[in-house]
Design a protein around this nucleic acid. Sequence first.
DNA 1: AGGATGACAGTGT
DNA 2: AACACTGCCATCC
Length: 139
Amino acid sequence: MKKKKTKTKPKKKAAPARKPPVVSNESVPEMILAAVRRIPRGKVCTYGNVAEVAGLPRRARLVGTVLRQTPSARGLPWFRVINAGGRISFPTGSDAYARQRHKLEAEGVVFVGGRVDLRRYGWPARDQQLDELLWKLPE
DNA sequence: AGGATGACAGTGT
DNA sequence: AACACTGCCATCC
């Protein structure tokens, strides 16, 4: 019996787990701002984590976009959002950089070499499970 | 309409 | 540590 149609093997590039439809865009900015408002005083959150807390995984850039076009006022703790490298995402030496850094330092956040220790000041806290596993390593 | 840009991030070299 | 590259996607030319 013939194999019927060689079929040339689809070999479709294995779609890399595309993200599902997610939410309807209207509420997106509010979801992000709500997440930012949850960052505790004296803590910082990375753009990526803000996105995740907001329920928008992998949309770190979107967080930056929303913050940029959001009126800074109104007690929104925008300054508690920094990048994954533990650094402020404004050019060093810019007014924006200075403003953000001062606000954070005023809350007790310490910069070392222009960076914040995310293990200490990062929110949400790092997964304890991993930490425990690290502690349990055999000697 | 299509390319460049950006308050980003993960991975690889 | 410093790039390069890729994914991501709203905005802005």
